[in-house]
Amino acid sequence: MEENRSINLITQTKIPGSLSHLIGNLQKTTVTGLTIFVIVSLLVGGVYAVLRLRLTTLTSARDRLRSQITAQAEAEALLVALKQRGIIVGKIIQDQIHWGSTLSRMTEIAPPPALSSIAVDAKRRVVATIQTNTTEEMFPILAEILTDTENKKILSPQVSSFGIDKEGISRLVITFIPVL
């Protein structure tokens, strides 16, 4: 047997074969893991940098817009005030009652002096006093009122009072609610 005459101060590794195999596998895992780690790190870092940059850009653009809007505060305040007033005015217009048409119609039905008075209370109920020289003259007036009732121009007409005085003058007080 040939003797190994060389001098080797560093002794051979004494890693067992199974461990050596494990180290081989571990090395492959490490290389793969390291590669994935580096790639993921780069990707995440890149995405973070892009997002940060975009956020900075957007924030500065937003601040610029805000200062532009602040500079137009007067126009904004006027627009807001106009819209608020528009709502109020619109509602008032909607609720407005034009009594002219009701009065005109009453003067058509009972032309003065037959129509001696007409009043409207807060509940929109009309009280009309009609007087005629004869009772016969009252009939066409009543007929007109009935026609308007049938045509739904007036609602719930009621005769409050009807009388004939010594001189034969007929006086009718009628109440109704006009459809406005």
């Binding site: 609720d95 009652i97 034009h98 009594w99 008075s117 409207v120 807060a122």
Partner: peptide
């Protein structure tokens, strides 16, 4: 003219509403 007043009162720029009235001829 009174009828004209009633027609016009709701059609001017200063809004006014009629709550009730009593008209004697």
């Amino acid at each position: 003219n009174v009828l004209q007043f009633f027609e016009t009162i709701g059609r001017v720029r200063r809004f006014m509403g009629i709550k009730s009235f009593d008209l004697a001829l």
